[in-house]
Design a protein around this nucleic acid. Structure first.
Lengths: 347, 347
DNA sequence: CTCCTTTGATAATGCGCATCTTCAGATTTG
DNA sequence: CAAATCTGAAGATGCGCATTATCAAAGGAG
């Protein structure tokens, strides 16, 4: 494999220019201290030889010699570029690409670990993780043990999404869902609604817990009473709404709302006229009966930019000093009031 | 930068297991010849130490020692993950990701070279190209000199899109546009149309020339007469159609058709009832007046799979023998008859 | 009992680069 | 004019791994 054809090396340049390999290296890196001095004349001669031979440094050798590589690893716990995932990952990856381009770094996607049981594993005997200077982690189902190992090895990385429940201090950039979720719930309450249904996927991720927390807090405070409904009971929503007297349905994400609307419409319930709807997630592109769905606008490009910024900070800081850094960043989602939460009409 | 924390090396394993570094390397690679022999007992002892210390090989060192890396480079001459590009690159990248996953390889995206003047440059002093075993090239505007350099350096790579007009023999995987374009034109002719307009972007790429070639051939043969129209004259289409008596408009891609339909509708021309339309490109997701647009279905996932297959072939073959290989592969696009080429009604 | 073969494993080497150390010769200082 | 300093550059070394050559000890043949 990999015939490894001979390329131009510093030694060849050195021979052409009549100097030592050391000198070539020094010239290439523009080094100049008291220890090493190269006069302009020699420097020019070497540079000329470099140009002539169109020298390109061997990144593996550079890396082995302890330098940085300007490569950022991107690890997704699920397939990232599939059509289904692009909806979610697309804006993120786009943001990452742009940020990487801005700082002149390459991106290594760890597609080599196959997706098994819906999740990938970052560590394996031949992982190319260490070719990178740092790594961005994406995905719902991160493996806690791997996060802990990264921390233990003092490898620079940033998770996307809140990860504050592992034993180890995991650096992350996350969206704050509590504040906008509460705002959206209060918007429904202000519109006169008193009883609601919350449709969720029953997942146990931090983001899911945040949203549910906002829902339960509203219930506890008496701002808006909720009944929690698992996604498997979506078909049953019309009956549940009638039984509880709920006039608004809030779901974990926009896709659940679309399913809910289908069920409601089939049962002859008009949305949003009879029952209001809102999603505690990104609603861009989602319309209900021609009206923009109430929910959030998640700033995913910004999320990516923030992640790479944090990662760069970690990379350029000695691990000993990481504890002094603010390694957990939160971004606010913008609330999209939409037009699917309507004033409650007393019936 | 890159503090390079100490990781587990073969030497440490060797010390634990009471053997030499050589032995560890041999065990790791399951090597066993007449030259080097390790009995099962020792082998097991070493393996145990490897497990205990959760050894992971340093990819840079492996590479420097002349081994393959299982990394494929992905170079796009334009930004790849932006929303506008995703439409085009998305299915390709998805296919590449899946193919890479299937064979257990990682993907290195060369985002470090910034896009200047709408195009990127693959070669620069610090390019990480050599970290990869081979490279896939995407984009409309490839730089001929770079392709030639890759060929000259015997670096394994595959271009996506036809590239048979450089001096050097560039390996590529491409879509054949001539056959389906001709089929589509003949479909229009069979529906009774005699005069057509061809809307193009005026680009000088192989694919564009292929399509135009099919158009001009049809004109020359008298199957269907064409007037060529640059995209800047789209607003003028209604007038041109009337002046020439054209009853069908064919464009280079679906987006041009959409613009054309806008112009026609604004001028009070009914599409497709009065004027039929078709695109010589991917039409998935494009509908005109509720009907599927006539055009192609480009097998982009398959294109990607084919590209990685060819690339693997190149990587595993000695460069001297490349000339014996079939390094140019063509895929057929499927014709989508659609419902926007209607029978010509004599008026 | 000596010589030849097999077994089991090690030391040495190189990959390409950056860096630390050394050193000869030129220049300045006392 | 000898000693101290500075200048310009080369030599040696290590990064972690694979590989080649080498070698001691054990076993077998005659």
């Amino acid at each position: 494999m990999a015939p490894k054809p001979r390329r131009v090396t510093q030694r060849e340049i050195a021979e052409i220019a009549g100097v030592s390999q050391t000198t070539v290296s020094v010239v290439l890196n523009d080094r100049d201290g008291t220890n090493v001095r190269i006069p302009e004349a020699t420097r020019a001669r070497v540079k000329k030889a470099i140009e002539q031979l169109t020298y390109v440094a061997d990144p593996a050798a550079r890396r082995l010699a302890g330098l940085d590589n300007q490569i950022i690893g991107v690890f997704t716990y699920e397939a990232a570029l599939s059509p289904e995932s692009m909806d979610f990952y697309g804006p993120l990856l786009n943001g990452i690409e742009r940020a990487a381009e801005r700082i002149g770094w390459d991106l290594l996607f760890f597609t080599s670990s196959p997706v098994e049981d819906g999740t990938r594993s970052l560590f394996h005997r031949k992982t190319r993780l260490r070719l990178t200077d740092g790594c961005v982690l994406l995905g719902q189902q991160m493996v806690a043990s791997e996060l802990e190992r990264l921390v233990a090895e003092q490898f620079p990385f940033v998770a996307i999404g809140r990860r504050d429940e592992t034993a180890a201090p995991v650096p992350y950039v996350a969206i704050d869902y509590v504040t906008p979720a509460t705002a959206l719930i209060d918007q429904a309450a202000a519109a006169g609604h008193q009883q609601a249904l919350y449709v969720h996927r029953g997942r146990d991720t931090p983001a899911a817990r945040d949203r549910r927390g906002a829902v339960e807090a509203a219930s506890a405070d008496g701002r808006l009473a909720f009944l929690l409904v698992g996604e498997e009971r979506i078909a049953d929503l019309p009956r549940l709404a009638q039984a509880t007297g709920a006039t608004v349905i809030i779901a974990e994400d926009a896709f659940l709302i679309e399913d809910a609307v289908l069920a409601l419409t089939a049962a002859g319930v008009a949305v949003p006229d009879e029952i209001s709807v809102a999603a505690l997630g990104e609603v861009r592109g989602h319309r209900i009966a021609g009206r923009p769905l109430a929910g959030f606008h998640v700033p995913r490009e910004q999320l990516a930019a923030e992640a790479l910024d944090l990662l760069q900070l970690l990379i350029s800081t000695e691990p000993q000093e990481w504890t002094d850094l603010e390694t957990r960043r939160h971004l606010d989602s913008e609330v999209e009031p939409g037009a699917t939460i309507v004033e409650r009409t007393d019936s």
